[in-house]
Amino acid sequence: MTEGLPPADQNLAVEASGLCKWFKKFQALRDVDLQVRRGERIVICGPSGSGKSTLIRCLNGLETCQQGQIRVNGRALAPGKNNLEIRRSIGMVFQSFNLFPHLSVLQNCTLAQVRAQKRSKEEAVEIARHYLARVKIIDQAGKFPSQLSGGQQQRAAIARALCMKPGTMLFDEPTSALDPEMIKEVLDVMVSLAEDGMTMICVTHEMGFARKVADRIIFMDEGRIVEEAPPEIFFSSPQTRRAQLFLDQILSSDVH
């Protein structure tokens, strides 16, 4: 399943080539190629429905694409299989947090460590507390998700993903569901992750964040990667009209 991909390169965290994905008749991804080096920070942006979520959901196998290959840390993602090992090496953070509502914050962070990583309960709790402290909600460890603010919930979700000690983190619009005053606390955590060298693929429209941490911006439209450039180039001189229009919209709405 790795034809179409060059031989595995140890410096690459994620490689995708020729991804095509259809929902029924509708094509959501059109021949997408993507290579992400270890430690690289990628920001994916683009209009609604352009396939950003679909792309990053394909990277950890939440969606299966009908064509193309994906390799994570040199290991091919097998379509239709469970790919548990690969999933455990990629963390994912969702727009809607998706914390488990029946478990406390601490239990949210230990469940997969104990069940999937086979860590002991004590070790899992220790690791969970470490990451909860890192995202500054250690004092909320015993609470249930519904007792936290949106920003706290998202930070808990980030901690939960970090507990698996992933080499790569995927973020799908992590701040879109948050009130403005909570966006910063989540972005701060993401910036600090980036500073620590985490490989990050972020779908976000937070252009300030993109400018600050992204090594590369990927602009998608209608299921394609239309532009790919370092932020200073992308923001100052977008090559396509679509990207120009998109930036005008985003930046003008940023002012308000």
């Binding site: 959901r57 950890n60 196998g61 939440l62 469970n82 548990l84 090992e85 999933r87 455990r88 990629i90 963390g91 994912m92 969702f94 809607s96 947090f97 998706n98 914390l99 488990f100 469940l111 997969a112 069940r115 999937a116 990583q117 979700a157 939960r160 993903a161 698996m164």
Partner: peptide
């Protein structure tokens, strides 16, 4: 919510563990 399945999957929980614990 569908996101519960997504989160469990993304964490690498097996199908069985997802059913029982989530």
């Amino acid at each position: 919510h569908r996101g519960q399945w997504d989160a469990a999957k993304a964490l690498g929980l097996s199908g069985f563990d997802t059913i029982i614990f989530v």
